[in-house]
Deep mutational scan, measured.
Amino acid sequence: MSIQHFRVALIPFFAAFCLPVFAHPETLVKVKDAEDQLGARVGYIELDLNSGKILESFRPEERFPMMSTFKVLLCGAVLSRVDAGQEQLGRRIHYSQNDLVEYSPVTEKHLTDGMTVRELCSAAITMSDNTAANLLLTTIGGPKELTAFLHNMGDHVTRLDRWEPELNEAIPNDERDTTMPAAMATTLRKLLTGELLTLASRQQLIDWMEADKVAGPLLRSALPAGWFIADKSGAGERGSRGIIAALGPDGKPSRIVVIYTTGSQATMDERNRQIAEIGASLIKHW
Results as ranks from 00 to 15, higher is better:
162 R>L: 05
75 C>S: 07
234 G>K: 00
260 Y>I: 09
217 P>I: 06
2 S>C: 10
47 L>N: 03
69 T>N: 02
121 C>A: 08
37 Q>W: 13
147 T>A: 07
247 L>W: 07
187 T>C: 09
234 G>C: 06
47 L>W: 03
171 I>Y: 14
114 G>K: 04
64 F>K: 01
141 G>Y: 05
143 P>F: 03
42 V>W: 09
80 S>D: 10
168 N>L: 05
242 G>H: 02
199 L>V: 15
79 L>D: 01
283 I>V: 12
209 M>L: 08
84 A>E: 12
232 K>G: 00
64 F>S: 01
58 F>W: 14
138 T>W: 10
146 L>A: 06
218 L>T: 04
272 N>C: 04
2 S>N: 14
102 E>A: 13
33 D>Y: 14
238 R>N: 15
190 K>A: 13
283 I>P: 02
2 S>H: 15
197 L>G: 04
40 A>E: 05
81 R>P: 00
118 R>C: 13
167 L>S: 06
278 I>Q: 00
185 A>R: 00
91 R>S: 07
15 A>H: 08
89 L>Q: 05
120 L>C: 06
223 L>W: 03
48 D>K: 04
145 E>R: 14
139 T>C: 09
54 I>C: 09
150 L>M: 11
150 L>G: 05
188 L>K: 00
218 L>K: 02
60 P>I: 12
44 Y>S: 01
61 E>V: 11
249 P>N: 08
104 S>K: 02
15 A>N: 06
5 H>E: 09
202 R>C: 06
241 R>Y: 02
94 H>L: 13
178 T>V: 05
68 S>N: 00
221 S>N: 11
152 N>L: 10
77 A>Q: 14
72 V>N: 01
161 D>W: 02
99 D>M: 12
19 L>R: 08
276 A>G: 09
217 P>H: 10
183 A>N: 09
286 W>R: 02
134 N>H: 04
64 F>M: 07
127 M>Q: 12
223 L>Y: 03
180 M>E: 15
53 K>G: 11
113 D>S: 13
115 M>C: 07
59 R>W: 04
229 I>C: 10
235 A>G: 11
268 M>P: 07
165 P>Q: 06
177 D>Q: 01
211 A>G: 13
264 S>L: 04
259 I>Y: 04
148 A>I: 13
81 R>H: 10
115 M>H: 03
54 I>F: 11
50 N>E: 14
245 A>G: 09
